[in-house]
Amino acid sequence: MSILENRVVKRIIDSLKWIARSSMLRSILVLSLVAAICSLALAYTNITTRGSVREVVRVALEDAAEHLGNYAEIIEVHPKGYGGDIHMVIGVSENGEVTGVVIIGMNETPGLGSKIEDEDFLNQFIGKRAGVSVGKGSNNVDAIAGATVSSKAVAEGVAHALEIFAELSAGGGE
């Protein structure tokens, strides 16, 4: 029994020696420290810039309201695009038609998905009703070539906004 125990202890000591010699622990330690310090730096930057970033978004939202046509309600949605959430606002008229769409922020692929900001694409939504999607038909819009995921995301965002509007007006009517 004691021989076996001795062997186990020896194995453990050998492994510890190997770890120390291979400088693996040192690598782990240094990389963790670098990551921790960098996180702190980022947290600090985030805290100091947060107020201004919010202000920029608020101004962008105010500007957007001027490009939404003759709306009764502005609805803000964040559908999931190809490169994260797309921040957009939709103007809806009293009878539930889209009066305008503005993209506030997005991270879609430059040159492809980023074309969802083009007026040619966004103006297609004007006058559309609940259930709008990408495809052929009178209540549908054309997707941007090479950017189907991004186009669909915007259409879903608009459809979702119209659902919210329907719920709002149903709740308000009662």
């Binding site: 730096a41 980022l42 930057t45 985030n46 810039t49 970033v53």
Partner: peptide, 9 residues
């Protein structure tokens, strides 16, 4: 990321 946040702000 610091540059990105500063530009956004």
């Amino acid at each position: 990321t610091v540059v990105d946040l500063l530009l956004q702000a």
